[in-house]
């Protein structure tokens, strides 16, 4: 019970504006949220692994002009929480989190529609010169909404959902489990392909993708090593170009 309350408090906090937007940069990312949820549930390592697995799919996640493809916040809370409590593999937790993120996204669409209505109250406050009214309007509805979603929803899912999900999982026949597992293994490819898509508006740069691939596939380098190599490589070549222009 205490754990469910703590996880839902975390979900509420990152669902509200009370994070000074650190949520957008860090805390609502499944990688980070998975770690925190894992910490609450007593298994930070598993939480991190599941969070990282989920985040891989959404590594190219972009929220542009108010429309996002998925609610990564709820995926990053419920995926790791259910994964730990119902004893799922990371792939199964991912397969659970992906549809949850899609449903969550439609709740966010609903929220933004509902809040259009509140925006008119702001006009009335402006007419009265009521600054405090505008401040409260910008804080209260969003905070109350976050108490319900993702807050309350998370509480209900963690408190009452984990048991049934676990018994459901134990009923699944082996081929279904291996189907879900393989689906979970393929899904991160979507995230990396999205990244590739954003970064190749100019196809000239595409070889850099294969350089990274070869460094990791043949030389077995870690991502950190590839990033450091990449930064060095870019600095060298750009220095050279600048040097040539100067001479």
């Amino acid at each position: 019970m205490l754990q469910a309350i703590l996880v839902s408090l975390w979900a509420f906090w990152i669902g509200s504006s009370l994070t000074l937007n650190t949520r957008f940069f860090a805390f609502m990312r499944p990688l980070v949220s998975g770690f925190v949820v894992g910490l609450i549930l007593g298994d930070p390592v598993k939480g991190t692994i599941i969070g990282a697995t989920i985040n891989a799919v959404y590594i190219g996640y972009m929220s542009v002009g108010g429309s996002a493809p998925a609610d990564i916040l709820i995926a990053g809370v419920l995926g790791p929480a259910m994964g730990i409590l119902a004893d799922m593999t990371p792939e199964m937790a991912l397969a659970f989190a992906v549809p949850v993120a899609m449903v969550g996204n439609s709740i966010n669409v609903l929220k933004m529609s509902l809040f259009s209505f509140f925006a008119h109250w702001a006009d009335r406050y402006a007419e009265e010169g009521n600054m405090r009214g505008i401040v409260w309007l910008n804080i209260i509805p969003g905070t109350l909404f976050a108490l319900v979603y993702p807050g309350l929803v998370t509480f209900l899912a963690v408190q009452y959902g984990a048991g049934p999900i676990q018994s459901l999982l134990s009923l699944l026949p082996a081929p279904v489990i291996s189907g879900i597992t393989v689906a979970g293994k393929l899904l991160p490819a979507v995230g990396y392909a999205l990244l590739l898509r954003y970064m190749t508006t100019d196809l000239v740069v595409l070889p850099a993708f294969f350089v990274g691939f070869v460094l990791a596939a043949y030389l077995k380098l870690d991502i950190m090593a590839v990033v450091i190599l990449g930064v060095c490589f870019v600095m060298l070549t750009q220095k050279q170009v600048a040097g040539k222009e100067a001479s």
Binding site: Y192, L195, M199, F209, V214
Partner: peptide
């Protein structure tokens, strides 16, 4: 952009 692409390639492989 270049560093990001290399990272994407490495992630794909690993």
């Amino acid at each position: 952009n270049l560093v990001g692409l290399m990272a994407a390639g490495a992630l794909t492989a690993r």
